[in-house]
Design a protein around this nucleic acid. Structure first.
Lengths: 203, 203, 203, 203
DNA sequence: CATGAATGAGTATTCATTCAT
DNA sequence: GATGAATGAATACTCATTCAT
């Protein structure tokens, strides 16, 4: 029977359906406005099932973020671990960032915005240590290390690498949000890289 | 006696107390998580009083945004209308932006993030035209016009002025959020201006 | 000065304005849905003024009912005290009823419907004795007495006079509510009288 | 065990418990004064449960009315479709009316009185067509058709059938409200029929 | 007397979470 | 494991009433 797919298969599938639906709904509505009802409707499952896989709404959100972030971080680490020069690494990372945010712009916007509210509660309740902030910053951290490398190599002006990384990161995000990168990702990546390295002033 | 301020004085004060409390709570919690109860507790007033001055929670939020934004826009317009060159105007605006966001970073983050949710309802209900989006973009618009002026003057590379304005804006905001501008506003403004005009690459 | 009309005059006028506005609003919205705010808007006065003349919303409603009812009861009593025969008296009363309800149909509908809710509270609170019910029934009582007189005179079939009075009364009210009496009060009065005395069956 | 009734059974029961409680509370307090809190207290259920079965207070009220009205209308239609003569049909309907209003007098009073307030909002909002009015008038309509039939048969005086139906209906209701039908339903039905057909005047 | 700013008790509704089947 | 009926804490908003001017 169609109904007799192995238990494991079905379960795995339910879990993924829920995560996919959650990604959509959290992206569209934000964390607090998203409802479990809307998620299960999209995931075509029952309410109890969500609570079988995730202990509560917040855990669902956190795991979603973590599972989306992991391969992105891996890609960045791979670039960082490569043999080429800092400038090349930075440009490569910039493309990875752009691709990732084109895919997850709304979800990450939610993460950035609602982190605070989520962690305030956690921190107050149990002295936790900002796990959302950690996920969010991890990507920028790798970029930051590579910028520092560029300074060591003497190709980038000495400056606060973290500050620089955040600036670069914010420009990427902004371009995505404003829609400038939607259909011209490569052109945009080059434009950002050029402005970042060379500035906008006519010399 | 302090307690015998005239009713008029007290009334004016109630409205301002509510707006001040609303600014705090909306900044901290975001629009949807903010509660009227928390606002009145901070404002030291009754629930009905809020509804005497503002027809509902959303109107309170909108008026708050509008009243904060107005003097900021005026300051930018004053700079734009001045006699000096584009580069000077841009640097001056950058300081104004930085000062404004140091004051209102969290509230503006809320505005940017929750605009969508607020306007979807409005637009669906009555075909309104995005009044939050309008408030939010107005500042960047002025900056954008000034960048375009710089291109005319030949001091800034030809490019999409709006895109540039958003990029610059996002960097400002990012610096504020990361706390780099908290106690070093001027240093930060200069660093941003320098990176923006000249880039980060060693020539 | 225009402003120096005698104090008494002005006060009386405010009181009447409030009562007139209250009549409109209570008629349209019912007792519980009517708001003091709407009444003062229509009466062109301040909220405090209402509470100067009437101790609370309920008292305002009660006094309104009482003052409307008094001349109506007087007119019925005048007919009852007259010299003519029962049938004539009944027909005359029927016209008075019709005229009164054409004027006050909605307000009396409210009275009849919301009496219960108003008096339950009162009775529970202070052992009062149904003052609304009293106002409402007083008109029917006079009609009932006159029907009993008709029975004595032998022109009306022996029956429960009160029951008959309520039946007649209800028909009058129904005709008014259904709008059959709006522009044809006299025709309607005759039609009711005829059906009441002679029945609808073909003999 | 009584406690282990199947979930389906219990669910059906919850819905009915809520409707029964709603009937009581709406009857006693009217639509606007009735509170969901009082309904759930009487229904021995939680607040959320009400909203699982009915989308809001108004829908609860409407469905209550509709489900009460349906079998009543069916009974009237059955009589109308029968083989006997108009006068017999009318008398039979009169008993059905009386029985129905003895059961639902207060709820129907509420319907009649608050229809207006409920439909004004609806009509303004979405151009709806008066669903309460429709439920309310449907019974009188059937009676009206049967009266018209009596005129065709030549046993009832030619007249406006609708007007007559409303008059008869109002008398029935009035008798119920005044309590004359409480323990003497049959006697009352006959008295009404007699007065209606033959009038009250001594011939 | 007339006024209206201030107030808070009361109400409909939403939504995360539980748990029996 | 999967399900969804039941639940109540939380929240925006209304409106009669008070009282200082």
């Amino acid at each position: 029977m169609a109904r007799s797919r192995s238990r494991t298969e079905k379960s795995a599938s339910k879990r993924e359906q829920i995560l996919a639906a959650a990604a959509e709904v959290f992206s569209q509505k934000g964390y607090f406005r998203a409802t479990i009802d809307e998620i299960i409707a999209k995931a075509d499952t029952g309410k109890g099932t969500v609570y079988n896989y995730f202990s509560n709404k917040e855990e669902l959100f956190y795991i979603l973020i973590k599972e989306k972030n992991a391969p992105f971080l891996q890609a960045l680490e791979d670039i960082a671990a490569g043999e080429c020069h800092a400038l090349e690494k930075i440009t490569a990372m910039l493309r990875v960032f752009l691709a990732f945010y084109l895919e997850n712009a709304d979800l990450w916007r939610v993460l950035m915005h609602e982190m605070r509210g989520l962690e305030d509660e956690k921190l107050a309740a149990e002295g936790g240590q900002g796990r959302y902030r950690q996920e969010f910053h991890s990507g920028v951290d790798i970029l930051s290390r590579t910028l520092a490398l560029g300074m060591q190599e003497g190709v980038i002006k000495e400056n606060d690498a973290r500050r620089m990384a955040y600036a670069l990161f914010s420009v990427i995000l902004s371009m995505v949000y404003q829609g400038y990168a939607r259909d011209r990702a490569d052109e945009t990546a080059l434009a950002i890289a050029d402005a970042f390295f060379n500035g906008v002033a006519v010399k």
